[in-house]
Computed example of a mutant assay.
Amino acid sequence: MASSASPAPFTTEILPVVLSDIDFPREADVPCIQQSSVTFANLHKAADIITKHIAPVAFPTETVYGLGASALSSTAVRQIFAAKNRPSDNPLIVHISSVSQLQRVLHTKVPEVYEPLVQKFWPGPLTIILPLPDPIRNKDGTETPAVSPACTPGQTTFGVRMPSHPVARALIAITDTPIAAPSANASSRPSPTTAMHVFTDMAGRIPLILDGGPCNVGLESTVIDGTVSPPAVLRPGGVSIEDIRKYGGPLWKDVVTGKSEAGRDEKVRTPGMKYRHYSPKAKVVVFVGQGDGSGGQVAKYLRDLTGDLKIGVLPSRSFNLTSWDDEMKKKVSIVKELGKSGAEISRNLFAHLRDLDDAGVDLIIAEGVGEEDEGAAIMNRLRKAATELLDNGQHIVKK
């Protein structure tokens, strides 16, 4: 169910931050920031809003823009759900600035099973699943959950990651508060990779967006679960499954891929499993294994279309639009190249879905990719965005 609380109206500011003003060495717990800079002032303005639980703020990470509030306060976390109109049973990932912050504030250590992967990929686009820490005992004898239950609806675990983006890490370090931060988009929309994407969805709903430029990964973090045997990838993302196997050591050689969809009444341990995600307003049809797109299912689909539709196409590795015949070409209004490499496609996917929505297309035809390396994460997002998926001309999924 969606959060029913109405977000307070705000005049949303977009404030610049300059990455070169921040020096955050890998092993450091506290960043060095040019104190006379606009970056210093704007980071501290955002930090003040977070520590006072006024409202969530948006900020760049290396994956997508996040919408952050204190993970220790249920009041603050509920403000995230209200601003996004996010279902209240969809868990949030907790973001930290250092391993020492995880230990000091959440009284949690990184389990041995994760150590080789944390050494390799933290800070970076990797989320690990941990058992919830013991509640904090107060002086009056009462107990307070170390992580707000609003982050972990009905769960005994929580997800945590350390972003590598200097703005995100600096903001978390300045507040010295673990920050709950889903993507800074309206629920179910494509995730934002620029400050203007955030503004499109969140204007009036949050007070502040820190603009650190476009995100360079473009897809959310990989979520892994080492609390189960064999360990599992719950959500593919910025770290490939192949790299999890390569760098995780013996315990991760047999890592399995968890199911990507959860049932209506099923509790989930990570975002992105239960509800439709990443969806533009336009209908999205994804073609997998269709060659250059000049014949077969793509051609038949285009030629069978009737009516005055504005169509956008997202080609990547195989679609060769120069080989399309005139009948196919005249039906296409806009083409946005996703790129050839997995990194390019990942970086461009959400942005191009938004671009085509902004152009007012009625239909988006997207080229699927193989699921090796970054392909698993790309196809995970395309499947969730798709209205229809045609796989080698045989399997059709309609939503």
Rank of each mutant, 00 (worst) to 15 (best):
residue 251 L to D: 14
residue 185 N to P: 02
residue 247 Y to P: 04
residue 278 Y to Q: 01
residue 193 T to Q: 06
residue 392 N to W: 02
residue 248 G to D: 06
residue 303 R to Q: 00
residue 271 P to C: 12
residue 391 D to G: 01
residue 183 S to E: 05
residue 88 S to V: 09
residue 248 G to P: 04
residue 356 L to E: 08
residue 174 I to K: 04
residue 377 A to Q: 12
residue 325 D to L: 05
residue 322 T to W: 03
residue 132 L to K: 13
residue 199 F to S: 07
residue 373 D to H: 15
residue 157 T to P: 02
residue 41 A to Y: 11
residue 151 C to E: 01
residue 201 D to Y: 08
residue 221 S to D: 03
residue 247 Y to G: 11
residue 73 S to H: 01
residue 184 A to C: 08
residue 82 A to H: 03
residue 54 I to Y: 07
residue 76 A to M: 00
residue 134 D to R: 15
residue 90 N to I: 13
residue 93 I to L: 13
residue 313 V to F: 08
residue 70 S to I: 12
residue 104 R to G: 00
residue 38 V to Y: 11
residue 63 T to D: 11
residue 115 E to H: 13
residue 107 H to I: 04
residue 307 G to W: 13
residue 282 A to M: 05
residue 120 K to M: 13
residue 256 V to C: 12
residue 70 S to F: 08
residue 361 V to Q: 01
residue 270 T to M: 02
residue 101 Q to R: 11
residue 396 I to N: 13
residue 317 R to I: 06
residue 309 L to E: 10
residue 218 G to W: 09
residue 39 T to F: 00
residue 249 G to Q: 06
residue 158 F to K: 09
residue 149 P to S: 03
residue 215 C to V: 09
residue 106 L to M: 12
residue 94 V to G: 07
residue 364 I to C: 01
residue 178 P to V: 14
residue 80 I to K: 02
residue 127 T to F: 09
residue 98 S to Y: 12
residue 237 G to C: 08
residue 12 T to C: 08
residue 202 M to I: 12
residue 77 V to K: 08
residue 75 T to M: 02
residue 9 P to W: 07
residue 10 F to E: 05
residue 70 S to R: 10
residue 89 D to L: 05
residue 392 N to E: 13
residue 221 S to E: 04
residue 163 P to I: 06
residue 399 K to Y: 15
residue 349 L to N: 01
residue 234 L to V: 05
residue 243 D to Y: 08
residue 260 S to Q: 15
residue 9 P to N: 11
residue 136 I to A: 02
residue 325 D to G: 07
residue 4 S to I: 14
